[in-house]
Design a protein around this nucleic acid. Structure first.
Lengths: 136, 136
DNA sequence: AACACTCACTTGCATATTGCAAGCACTTTT
DNA sequence: AAAAGTGCTTGCAATATGCAAGTGAGTGTT
């Protein structure tokens, strides 16, 4: 994806220039459910991103400061990727995507049940989840 | 974009399989601000989508019932594209994208001012706008 | 210290998608 | 009847993607 030149001044367009491809939001999703992931963790996701694409997307995400690299506590060979606040703040978007999908796409019952809880207090869910993701 | 096979059962992934490319949400955006557009209207947007991509995206959007074609009242040569309820319901996502962009990307002051109003009553804005888009 | 093994990438290459320009059928205007 | 507008389609070059294999640093085992 070309993230160098922006296509217009529209906020939607500029946002899509950063994370508007088939893969990036899935990486963000993984980081939101895992809090922090290694390169290998991303590769385990069911969508099977390929290694070169993953490396390219992580680079763009880091350049745009949506994620940051951390030293892994267990090993110098491993790298931990973590969302910055800027990345965490994509959560409201992902929540709305889930709610749209719940309304129009098929979804497992347990996933639906989880979303029912989210809907009861959307703002509260986002706040709690954000705080949880922000602590190191 | 390949919309035939879905990559996983994840709601995010399935949603992205439909509208998760660089162009589709811009088409949706145009339809939200214009209520209905012709093929030529889309081409006038500042991002300069090319004609073959536009035709391909409109086809996928129609196949997935996010938009519908209507006869133009003025001319048989023209076609009117309009959002279905399924397409209109992407509005909460676009609102959140705008709010994220407001927080992290540069934006004109008048656009910011408009978003301040949206933030004061997000649910109300979405409801009003949805009703407005739904009437023929 | 040598060995295999893990981990995070990078590289090469075939295939798929995009983007530009031109073309085309149909309708409307002059 | 000719010219222009409208909604596409087609051809082709440039770019991006996806797969497999490779690399090089770090780790754990002997």
């Amino acid at each position: 994806m070309n993230t160098e030149k922006k296509r217009s001044d529209c906020p939607i367009s500029c946002s899509l220039d950063i994370w508007g491809d088939k893969w990036t939001l899935l990486i963000i999703r993984d980081l939101m459910s895992a809090k922090a992931s290694t390169y290998g963790d991303f590769l385990k996701s069911p969508e099977r991103i390929s290694t070169n694409i993953l490396a390219a997307r992580l680079k763009v995400l880091e350049e745009n400061k949506l994620i940051e690299k951390l030293a892994h506590p267990d090993s110098k060979a491993k790298v931990l990727y973590k969302l910055t606040r800027k990345g965490i703040d994509l959560l409201p978007i992902l929540v709305e995507v889930n709610l749209w999908a719940e309304k129009y796409l098929s979804m497992s019952d347990d996933r639906k049940a989880m979303l029912e809880d989210v809907k009861k207090d959307k703002a509260g869910f986002i706040k709690t989840m954000t705080e949880n993701l922000e602590e190191l």
